[in-house]
Every structure is written in C-alpha cells, then in structure tokens.
Write a protein that binds this DNA or RNA. Structure first.
Lengths: 206, 206
DNA sequence: TTCGTATCGATACGCCTGTATCGGAAGGAT
DNA sequence: ATCCTTCCGATACAGGCGTATCGATACGAA
C-alpha cells in the first residue's frame, strides 16, 4: 500500500497502453476505424478483454487515446524538420515536411489510412474535431514562424498575405495526406510529388 | 408478364433508390458512415427492411450506391461551372468551384461530412478507392482543359507545369473539402476563404 | 502461514448487426 | 371467380458489439 508499489503498476500500464496504441494502429490501417473493437484490439495486442477494459473504461476513451497516440507521432515527425539559419531553408523544410507525408513505407501508409479515419470521425465527433483543431492551431503557429523566416530571407513569393499562405498550406497538407491514404499499395507517387513540387515552386516564387 | 408491366415497377424502384440515397445522406451526415445500417436506412427512408433489401442485396451494394449517388451530385455541381470565352475567366471559375465547396448551408455541410466518410472508407476498400480514382481522372481532364485555356488567356502564372498545377489543385480541393467537413456548425469560414484567395492568387500570378 | 486486497481473465448480458426465410396480400390472366 | 405469380413487410437467426460482473489467483502485510 506504500506509494512505490504503484511504480511497477504504472510502468506495466504504460507498456500496455503503448501496445494497445500500436494494435489499434495496425487494425485501423487494415480495416479502418470500423474494424476497431475492444475484442479485436485485445487480441491484436495479446491482451485479455478485461485488461483493455481496465485501461480504457469505454471504447470512446480507447479511440481518443489512439488519436493522441497518433498525434504525438506525427507531431514528433514534424518537429524534426528545423527551418532556420544553419539549418534548412524554408523551401527545403517545406518540401521535407510534405515529402515525409508520402506513403513511402508501410508505417506511413498505415498512418495515412488511420488519419483518414480520424478525419472522418472528426466530422461527426466534436471531441475528435477539437483535438484536430488544436493540432491545426499549433501548426498555424509553426507555419507562421517558418513563413516569417522565409520572408526575411527573401524566399517567399512577394506580396502575399502570410496568414493566407499558412491556411493554404494547412489545407494542402490535409489534402496530400488524405489523397495518399487512398492510393493502392504499390501505386506510383508521381501525382503527389508533382503537387508538392508545384506547391513549393508557387509559394517560394521558384 | 408482358413487358410494360415492369414500367411502374421500375419507376417505383427508382423512387425508392432515390429516397434511400437521400436517407443515407442524412444519416451519414448526422452520425457518420458507421451509423448507416440497413434498419436505420429503412426507417429514415420510411421503408421496410425488406424493401431496402430487395433493392440492395447487401450492405456493400447499399454503400456503393450511396457513393455513386453523391458523386453524381458533386459532378453535377462542378459541371455547372463553365470556364471559357463568353463565360467565366479561369480565375473566376476556379474561385467558384472552391467557394462552392464551403459548408455555407446544411446540404453542403452534410455532403462534406459524407465525403469525409467515403474518403476514409476508400483508404481500406478498393472498390471505393477505384471510384474516387475515376473521379480524380475525370477531374484531371477537366482541369487540364481549364488550365490550358487559362494559359492561352495569359491568366496563368508563367513557367509552370500544367499537369503539376492540376495535381496541386486536386490535392487542394480534397484538403479544402475535408477541412470543411470537420468545422463545427457555426464556425467562421475565414480560414478556408483565405486559403482559396491565396490559391487563386498564386496560380494566376495575381 | 494466514489473511485481505488488488488484479487477473473469462464469461454473461442485452442490444444491434447483416442476411435469410416465410406467410399473406395484391392483382392481372384465364 | 379462381388461379398463379409477384411483391410485400414481419420475423428468425447467428454472430459481433460494448459493457458489467464474478470467481480465481497472486501477493504483500500481519
């Protein structure tokens, strides 16, 4: 009953949550969010139904966790791209972010599919929509900084409203992400790549 | 058993299919595609389960029909925008198409939500993905024509690859459509509008 | 060792799903 | 009027769902 008794429990719990997150990832990538049920998740994670239930009281909690889990991964991926002096130019950074969305491996392909499912759910679930809106707000801040830097460096096409450009880029990221989600397994990525090239060229004025 | 006996049956059948399509629209806009079940659809359309079953042998057939139903509506909406001499300039047409996607009324809001669901399903259902790919192909053709006309008229920003621009616009349409899908009911549309302005400005070089 | 508690997996519950089946109404043809 | 076909809606069925419950087990405290 002493406090440090909880230490192993918490660790265990975190491990379980992690593996549940991964399990949901795999299932959702395979069959969409509709295929995610408590039983299936438990089986995929090698846990009993009870174990999953004890970790997540309701299915909603489960899916919310899965979204957070995915957001963390994507945010981490984006945050690795550093734009600034002694680092990437804006054009390089913008290209890096967009190219990184392309489904060039299984993990990325799976993530694109999961996000498609999350987006769809956000359309009818306020909680999901809010989380994505938060993510957007955060992205807007980062984009504003990047675009400001680009303007300083003369990298930006002249005479454009920075906020509007940020909105356009947000929309473009969503579109690219979702377009990629519905490409078949071995499909060529020429189309998306061309879109990225065009976007970078237009925004930076070449 | 004579042939014209089928005439009223066919008409009836088409009416039923139409009302089923509308019913699915309403349900999917309200609760997402997960909420679409045979029973619920039947109730929403004021039909018996058997009637729906007779019209659509399986649920898959039902959803496929719903997608076709929605594609027809969107295609019709787009086809009303005419770009060319004695009609809209490219910039006007492009803006019209994009603005028309905004959830400015209930019907548009519902449609955006439904498409979010369809996109998500296309990520895990080959049949859906193919239908959307066909739609993309068709849009590519139309965009190519519009962009060609724009180039002729000197409306297009110079030195850009037309095919790449078309890909970018496709991605942007998807992104705009889906971003709108997850906006809350009365949310301001400033962001999307700014994105549209920026897109039109960039593509036409002002 | 024995007790008390906390955590475990299994299973029960009621509901909803997609689909199949079936008795009866309806309505031309004879 | 009778038959026969066609279409109708109600209901049956098996299975999956989210969630609640419960006996067994493991394990630290006494």
């Amino acid at each position: 009953m002493c406090q440090n008794e909880e230490v192993p429990k918490v660790v265990d719990s975190q491990n379980r949550r992690q593996s549940v997150g991964e399990a949901i990832h795999r299932i959702a990538a395979r069959e969409g969010i509709e295929g995610v049920s408590v039983r299936v998740v438990a089986a995929e994670a090698g846990l009993s139904v009870g174990a999953v239930q004890r970790e997540f009281r309701t299915k909603d909690e489960l899916l919310r966790f899965a979204l957070d889990f995915s957001i963390a991964e994507v945010a981490d991926r984006f945050s690795r791209v550093r734009i600034g002096p002694e680092s990437l130019t804006f054009a390089e950074g913008m290209r890096a972010v967009l190219v990184d969305l392309l489904p060039t491996d299984d993990r990325r392909r799976a993530q694109a599919r999961i996000w498609a499912a999350f987006y769809a759910r956000a359309a009818v679930d306020t909680g999901f929509a809010e989380k994505l809106a938060d993510l957007d707000a955060q992205a807007r801040v980062n984009l504003a900084a990047a675009l400001g830097y680009a303007r300083e460096q003369g990298e930006l096409v002249s005479g454009r409203n920075t906020e509007a450009l940020a909105e356009l880029l947000l929309v473009m990221i969503d579109g690219l992400w979702l377009t990629c989600a519905r490409l078949p397994e071995g499909a060529p990525l020429d189309g998306p790549r061309a879109a990225i090239d065009a976007a970078v060229a237009l925004v930076t004025g070449r």
